[in-house]
């Protein structure tokens, strides 16, 4: 389990990085961010990039700040930076609650938020967060930058709308209003593993009724996404068992679960209903 040979590049500016990417991407040149997904894949020789463009020394990729109503997360911001709230308010707390479910402490010291989003494992917590909260991805290439909304970004298992010569320079997550409540749930068999299914829900209350519900599901399908049917079941309802069960059932019915040797579709579907219901209960409590 030793990686195949590659050429190593350590640019220090974004321009240099995207220039290298433009040059080498056609020969499977790739970005090396935290390496926490890429290096294991290389060890199994499932990936054999010929060039690695290490962005760890690139200046100005470590942005983690609120700008125009969104939390901007640069490409070298590590999971561990969310161990304490990255911003004031509900969003900061939410991200801190979620991060402890991602892998393990040492992996969180290296792995990056943007790397997760670019890698796009269907069971990535950050991908689900980005999908649920309508994040915007900023893709940068030698020829300029592109803004990609989350709903168009995640295509299928480990496949995104990023072009091969594009660096995911930043992810922007809209700040959540102070009256937003949220609930997060995931289930895995063993601490730190990728989840079999997971969900993030948010909503606000107006006059005791649910408004602007977001129900995101990850891990169950080939990509994370908001489940419109579940959101419809919640909108305008009074929070409570009836509404939550209806939303949970709607989510379970709406998804097209993946199957693998360890988990069948029925189990994922049932589990998703449970998790959505529990996340809604968390949000309400």
């Amino acid at each position: 389990m030793k990686p195949a040979a590659f050429e190593y590049h350590a640019p220090t500016t974004i321009d240099e990085a995207v220039a290298l990417l433009a040059e080498h991407a056609p020969n499977d040149g790739r970005i090396l961010a935290g390496g926490q997904s890429l290096v294991p894949t290389m060890a199994f020789r499932l990936a054999r990039p010929t060039h690695l463009i290490d962005i760890n020394n690139v200046a100005n990729l470590d942005k983690l700040a609120i700008e125009s109503g969104a939390l901007c997360i640069g490409a070298t911001v590590r999971h561990a930076q969310f161990h304490t709230p990255a911003c004031d308010g509900v969003l900061g707390r939410l991200l801190t609650d979620v991060v402890s479910n991602i892998a393990h402490y040492p992996i969180r010291q290296r792995g990056t938020f943007c790397g997760s989003v670019a890698h796009s494992d269907p069971a990535s917590e950050w991908c689900m967060v980005a999908a649920t909260l309508d994040a915007t991805m900023i893709a940068q290439s030698a020829s300029g930058e592109r803004l990609i909304p989350a709903k168009d970004f995640f295509e299928t298992v480990m496949t995104t709308a990023l072009n091969e010569d594009e660096l995911l320079r930043e992810v922007r997550i809209p700040v959540l209003s102070d009256d937003t409540v949220y609930g997060f749930q995931e289930f895995n068999r063993r601490a730190g593993d990728f989840a079999i299914s997971m969900t993030l829900v948010t909503y606000q209350l107006e006059g005791g009724k649910i408004v602007d519900p977001h129900v995101g599901v990850g891990g169950a399908e080939d990509r994370p996404r908001r489940i419109a049917e579940a959101e419809a079941a919640l909108a305008g309802q009074t929070p409570g068992d009836d509404a939550f069960r209806a939303a949970a059932d709607a989510a379970a019915a709406a998804i097209d679960p993946m199957e693998d040797h360890a988990t069948n579709a029925q189990y994922r579907r049932d589990l998703t209903a449970t998790l959505v219901r529990r996340a809604l209960e968390n949000a309400a409590s």
């Binding site: 390496g35 290490d54 561990a80 040492p106 010291q109 290296r110």
Partner: peptide, 13 residues
């Protein structure tokens, strides 16, 4: 001073 997996970094890094 941060604990990391040394199998998931390259020496050159």
């Amino acid at each position: 001073d941060s604990p990391v997996r040394s199998c998931l970094m390259f020496g050159i890094q």
